[in-house]
Nucleic acid binder design. Structure first.
Lengths: 193, 193, 193, 193
DNA sequence: GTATAACCGAGACGGTACGTCGGGTCTTTGG
DNA sequence: CCAAAGACCCGACGTACCGTCTCGGTTATAC
């Protein structure tokens, strides 16, 4: 299933949307942002790198951050856990979350930053990224024996909160961090890992 | 301790920096950002509102975000807990943190966002805001009976992480949130609220 | 022959330069300079008056004076003598020169002034204004019976020199001035007017 | 007679104007303008070069061009002919005029240019430079046998007009130019030089 | 001597224009 | 109707310079 909403089964006449161009734009956007940072990348630059015109970008995406969000999702880095309802234990789940977040760090940080100035983007970001990740973690926590709903929600905020917090502040999501956070999530009374 | 770094003890001749102007700029910056949002405020606008020249801003601050960080700190909103080494229990400490963060939310969010595009600002933000807050929380946690260093650090990341996470995503720092997070911090084995 | 140098015969795709905008800018520039004086007119003001963006001006003209030179030439005021190789007698030729120069005085003075600070503009001014006028006068002098080349060149400098001299010093190019200068140009030995 | 208007015979107390500073400013102004061109020189730069403060300049001169005009006159370059009512023949008088104008060309050109945007400066320029030169030339023409007032005035405009015209257009005031202009001034019927 | 006042260098100040840059729209030619 | 190219409007940016104001400090009279 494609990660965009437009249906290609258009009826009317006219040229169809070029799939190669769409992919080239997404790739160029992702690569440039990771390499040079979001703010240093211009729409014109992405278009040029993709061999596309600026208008082709704005025909299909509402704005630069919307494009970058799409690019992130398309690259699948965001699919921190591709097989969505994962049945892995919490520690390895969280490990994968951190690894993926580290890889996509420049894009994630830019998006969160832009989302502060752009309500629509913020909504998109929450719907397409944040909420999906929360759901996956909730499932994992249930399987890990966190039966109390309230505690589960608290842990969702604590774990993802800490991940973003460190990401945004340039602090590494290293093993020590991962271990410390996992320990927080241990159900009361459980003796060992 | 004053909130500015420049030393006022200049030796040489020449007109001194105008303190009224400095204060007017900081006030104008803070008020405009809170009222209209960071991105909608221009340097020229701040200067005009302060009855100052644009150059006077650029003479003393490296950029708009640097100014806003100063303005935030000056306004003391950042002093989430003015009596720094607080001896209050964790729950009321965290309550005050959340209340202050809610008040200054537009400024905090803008600064964190800009810091993603500006390394120097990020360093400033960490040194002048993030680290101070962490220290205060560490003290409070010690007094709350969290004796394990590692657990304490994990809680610092979890609590502040969750605060920022919700702040940046426009989710309220309400009583339910506060209660849930406090519960996480209860030392293992402590039986009740 | 059009008064612009850019070749409109572009091959490739892309939006064409907007002719209405070009004309609006030239008109706005000319009118504003005549009305308010060169130094009091800003690029932004010209752009606004023309309903154009500042960037559109800087895309096509190197600087404010370059634009004003173009505007002057476009307005045809510069065509002090539109039917270029004129066959009118010297006195009426010079009369027309003075009348046109008086009309365009603010623009001419500003351009000559700016040309003192800008080598490229000076070259443009000489090529597109000064030399053309000199040629027209040379023709007229030949027809007026000034056969000696050296004397002709001296008269060219004397007549145009005096015109500019008085123009720049705010002295009128009135009938008395015209008559006195014409008398200078009378070929030696010719008895009467 | 000094070339400034302020009378030093002040009554009251207070420090007297520093003559060394005054001279240093005039020299710095003249040299910088000749070397770098008027537009490229700032008031602050002149002050620094003279080891003076900006305020010291603005205390005594109304503006940058006023200062430069003074500097020109002080340097005596403007005193094209120091022994004012000269009794030399026209050809050597004009030769000296051209030589002096060539030396001071950058300053003269800048002043004439600035005068286009500044009415007060234009008046000063005419009174202190233009009119004095015209008077000297009138005397010389009388002695050269140009008895007709009208013709004399025409020649004044023609000769100085041509000098300025060539100066402003970067054309040399060379021997050929001088000879051609002198010839124009030969009284009707006079056979040789 | 001791006030008083104008000077001096230094440099911050309010203001205005500059020329550049990027976002997002519009308009061509061509497929 | 889509695509590349690129001109367009808009508006913020940070810089530069102008001429003024304000420092601490330095001469000079005038008392």
């Amino acid at each position: 299933m494609p990660d965009q909403t437009y249906s290609d089964a258009r009826a009317g006449p006219g040229r169809r949307r070029s799939e190669p161009t769409r992919l080239a734009i997404l790739d160029a956007a992702y690569d440039l942002v990771v390499r040079k940072g979001y703010a240093a990348v211009t729409t014109a630059e992405i278009a040029a790198a993709a061999g596309a015109g600026k208008q082709t970008i704005y025909r299909w995406w509402a704005s630069k951050p919307a494009l970058v969000l799409d690019a992130l999702q398309h690259r699948g880095e965001v699919e921190i856990d591709p097989e969505f309802p994962s049945d892995q234990p919490l520690s390895s789940f969280f490990q994968r979350v951190c690894a993926a977040a580290t890889r996509a760090a420049p894009v994630l940080r830019s998006l969160m930053a832009e989302a502060q100035f752009d309500t629509a983007l913020r909504a998109e970001l929450k719907a397409r990224l944040i909420e999906r990740r929360r759901d996956a973690l909730r499932q994992t926590l249930i399987r890990a024996g966190i039966t109390d709903l309230r505690q589960r929600e608290a842990l969702v905020l604590a774990l993802y909160g800490a991940v973003w917090y460190r990401l945004l502040l340039d602090e590494p999501l290293d093993d020590a961090f991962i271990a410390a956070m996992i320990e927080l999530a241990r159900p009361a009374g459980s003796g060992s890992d």
